[in-house]
Design a binder for these strands. Structure first.
Lengths: 175, 175
DNA sequence: ATAGAACGTTCGATAAAAGGAACAACGAGA
DNA sequence: TCTCGTTGTTCCTTTTATCGAACGTTCTAT
């Protein structure tokens, strides 16, 4: 398996644990696993079982995928990582994405089908987004809806941005 | 670990594989794992390694968490299923959820902290939602933002509803 | 000082996950 | 009909992830 994502798991695990002010022993005990096991995992060695990952995710109260999803593995080379959350089966068709942009990144998205609209909700960080020439500044908690049948962009300043994106394809479905 | 989520993984695995029209042998070969291993996993027995899950997720092109996240894990007994997608670390604090409501279901949510606001984006189905006494009818693609420091509710008619929910805790963080 | 209780690491034993080969069942083609 | 290829399952073996205990450290309290 990817060695990077293995060490990322370790770092991530340790970060989350310390963020909660727990000791390695405490977390291991709470999760019901040997602390030797947890120790090895945090060091980046090892290849944990689903059971082990699951128990840790429950204790740390993180949505599982968060534990293993590498924080800094952009899907494209452009510093932007996108994950499909769900897609509706009704009309209009709706696609829901989770998206994360690295600092000082600009992503320009191609126009979608005519009538398509996008809604953004910023989870953390700051982001400038919208149709080109009509972008808005967003902070955590802000939402923005705009016509997505024109070229539009997402631009970050000096910090990361995490957001929810839903694309609504009014009219015909694009697939 | 939860035995249910273990068998769910198996079913899920099989569903995704067949949806792509692949045979067990093909997927196993493509993922670089023994087919005996995959066979056991699809049967619901076994406790796969992160390496194994990872390889399968890559081949099936699913965002990892999707493989193990049980499709039907209602948070309450009230026909409502909620999954935490992400939570921001900035101020204001933002929590992002994926939510699914069964037909003819009403869920009344307690008020959040003062100043809190909620944004909904309907992915599929129909939903009536908002602060009690001021609810709106939503169809797929619609969005709604309202003050969440009062009691508010989500009500479905004769079909399912899937939506994104983001809670913005303006002011102090509730944890 | 010193005893005590935590911390996180390292070590051998054990349980179990992954690999590999043989297996019966099925369908396609000569 | 008979053969060949593929399906998915079931053994057995090998690898390894997990456990439990012992270890050296650090910090606090006596």
């Amino acid at each position: 398996m990817d060695t990077p994502s293995l060490s990322t798991l370790g770092q991530h695990l340790q970060t989350l644990r310390k963020a909660r002010g727990w000791s390695l022993s405490q977390l291991a005990a709470a999760a019901g696993i040997a602390k030797s096991n947890l120790s090895r995992l945090e060091q980046g060695n090892g290849n944990p079982t689903l059971d082990t990952i699951w128990r840790l995710a429950v204790q740390l109260k993180v949505p599982f995928g968060t534990l293993v999803a590498p924080i800094a593995v952009p899907l494209g080379e452009d510093g932007v990582e996108v994950r499909l959350i769900d897609q509706g089966k009704d009309s209009p068709q709706v696609d829901a994405y989770w998206m994360r942009c690295a600092p000082f990144t600009t992503r320009v998205a191609e126009p979608h089908t005519p009538g398509a609209r996008e809604s953004l909700t910023l989870i953390s960080g700051h982001l400038e987004a919208g149709p080109e020439g009509d972008t808005r500044q967003l902070a955590a908690g802000d939402t923005l809806t705009f016509a997505a049948d024109r070229a539009h962009c997402y631009r970050t300043g000096d910090d990361w941005a995490t957001l929810l994106v839903s694309v609504v394809y009014h009219g015909e479905v694009p697939r």
